[in-house]
Write a protein that binds this DNA or RNA. Structure first.
Length: 313
DNA sequence: CAAATTTGACCTGT
DNA sequence: ACAGGTCAAATTTG
């Protein structure tokens, strides 16, 4: 939030990457020109150069998606502090394989791509930008936290994570198949603070978000988990040239235990600084989330039933 | 009845 | 072999 350089994260990163690359390149250049220096050094330098430029390229435009692609300079005025994420996702096989087996379907055909497709996608997916943030919920609001855009998510899995007390749930954009939008997110309840969830996004939306979604209620269901909130906001914005790479903010491994729950919430633009992520919000008096989480759980009774009877205000 | 979720099987990278 | 992530059939929800 504090702003010194008003440069966007992308710009900063790109700049430093390019500078590093250039510097390394120059050194190597002089070295090679001089004498047969140590092979090791050269190797290191070369590696650095390569990776640096790779990242730069990725930042600049690592998209080459067949369809979708949204490198259009949206004339939308973005808040200076917030930049809706908009990284086109795609192969970006910079120095990977000069193959052309890159894109699958350019339209929407998908008759029988089976594991091939799966494999391909999983690889591709790994390269998608990733970032995470924490969201806290408040008894009345539902959720609190950076709420900017809201996309429609569809849960496609849940898994227990080793060491974590709560399962992690996986969501993907509802328009995955229809619009080839590969944005996904995973939600994990914080071990420590029951009102905090950590959500990790992967890939940005390439769908015309805010699709036509019937008026939905943002309610809470009576299920062992607060799920669903396929909210959709129609904000004709956000499609752009934001770039980001893989940043992963992570909460340390705290160990607490509880029941389990999940819920989904909106998406938010990624914004952080390279190795600097200090977003510790002042923790206001936390209230109890009462039953929104699990009114009834089917967990072993051996567990402290999550917020079963905590404070009530 | 269509769309979303649940959940165990399956896939892939350490 | 294991853990995390995804698929897909069955089931639930609206």
């Amino acid at each position: 939030m504090e702003g010194k350089d008003m440069l966007s994260w992308e710009q900063k990163t790109l700049l430093s990457e390019l500078i590093l690359g250039l510097d390394a390149a120059k050194k190597l250049q002089s070295r090679l020109g001089e004498a047969p220096a140590t092979a090791e050094t050269d190797e290191i330098l070369v590696k650095q150069i390569v990776s640096t430029y790779e990242r730069s390229l990725l930042l600049l435009n690592w998209s080459s998606s067949p369809t979708t692609v949204q490198l259009l300079p949206t004339p939308v005025t973005l808040s200076p502090a917030k930049n809706p994420g908009g990284v086109p996702e795609s192969p970006a096989s910079i120095n990977g394989s000069p193959r052309s087996e890159e894109f699958v379907d350019g339209g929407g055909s998908s008759e029988s791509h089976h594991r091939q497709d799966y494999i391909f996608n999983s690889k591709k997916r790994k390269m998608l930008p990733k970032w995470s943030e924490k969201v806290r919920i408040s008894p009345e609001r539902g959720l609190e936290g950076p709420q900017d855009d809201v996309y429609s998510w569809r849960k496609y899995g849940q898994k227990d994570i080793l060491g974590a007390k709560f399962p992690r749930s996986y969501y993907r954009c509802t328009h995955r198949s229809t619009q080839n939008c590969w944005a996904t997110k995973q939600v994990q309840r914080s071990d420590g603070d029951a009102t905090v969830f950590e959500v990790t996004y992967r890939g940005t939306h390439t769908c015309s978000q805010a699709a036509i979604t019937p008026p939905q209620k943002e309610n809470t269901r009576l299920k062992p988990a607060i799920t669903t909130t396929t909210t959709t906001t129609q904000k004709p914005k956000d499609l752009l040239q934001s770039l980001k790479s893989n940043l992963t903010v992570r909460t340390d491994g705290l160990d607490v235990d509880d029941g389990k729950d999940v819920f989904s919430f909106p998406d938010t633009p990624p914004f952080y600084t390279y190795g600097d992520f200090s977003h510790v919000e002042s923790s206001p008096p936390i209230f109890d989330v009462g039953d929104w989480f699990n009114p009834t759980v089917d967990i072993d009774t051996t567990f402290p039933t999550f917020l079963n009877e905590s404070i009530y205000y």
